[in-house]
Amino acid sequence: MQVQDVMTPNFRVIPYTASMGEAATLMRDEDVGFLPVTNENQVVGILTDRDITVRGLAAGFPPETAVSEVMSPGVDFQYADADPQAAAQLMEERQVRRLVVLDQSNRCVGVVSLGDISVGSGNPVLGGATLERISEDSPASSVSGEPNPAA
């Protein structure tokens, strides 16, 4: 089994110039809390509903503020042909619950969540154990240090 077997292939992205209000509307309409942020088809960051709420609105930014002002820069990712266990391990290390999925050409082809791994891998223990370790207190990095993937 590979990450591509459990990932969500149909996902939406948002341009870095879009507003927080536009992002919130898209999240509501698509029933998601996570959007890859793009600049000229390159994924340059991640935007979560928490970013909009905490970094944006609670910090006093108006809804018209560009998502680039409140997004998490950088991208945590896993390759589509990787084992779901490797994705779970990376989620633990980075303390994130979602990863962008890339093909071997570094093109963004999906998103994999902790829930996708837990349900899709047939190993709910993996998901529970990973969630427990993700939730532990420790410094987390949101930048992978790898090349910027194309969307």
Rank of each mutant, 00 (worst) to 15 (best):
M1E: 01
V3H: 08
V3E: 02
D5G: 11
N10Q: 14
R12Y: 15
I14G: 07
P15A: 08
T17I: 08
A18W: 04
G21V: 04
E22K: 15
R28D: 07
D29S: 12
E30F: 10
V32N: 01
G33Q: 04
L35S: 02
V37I: 12
V37Q: 00
V37H: 00
N39D: 13
N39I: 07
E40R: 14
E40G: 02
V43L: 09
V44N: 07
T48E: 02
D49C: 09
I52C: 05
I52Y: 07
V54M: 11
G56D: 02
A58W: 03
G60L: 05
G60F: 06
T65N: 06
T65E: 04
M71E: 04
M71W: 05
P73M: 00
F77G: 01
Y79Q: 05
Y79P: 00
A80S: 15
A82E: 13
P84I: 04
Q85G: 08
A88W: 07
A88Y: 07
V96L: 07
R97I: 07
L99M: 11
V100H: 00
V101T: 05
D103E: 04
D103C: 06
S105E: 15
R107K: 13
R107Q: 14
C108N: 01
C108F: 03
V109C: 04
L114P: 04
L114T: 02
I117M: 14
N123W: 03
V125K: 13
G127L: 05
G127F: 03
L131W: 05
L131H: 10
G145N: 09
A151Y: 13
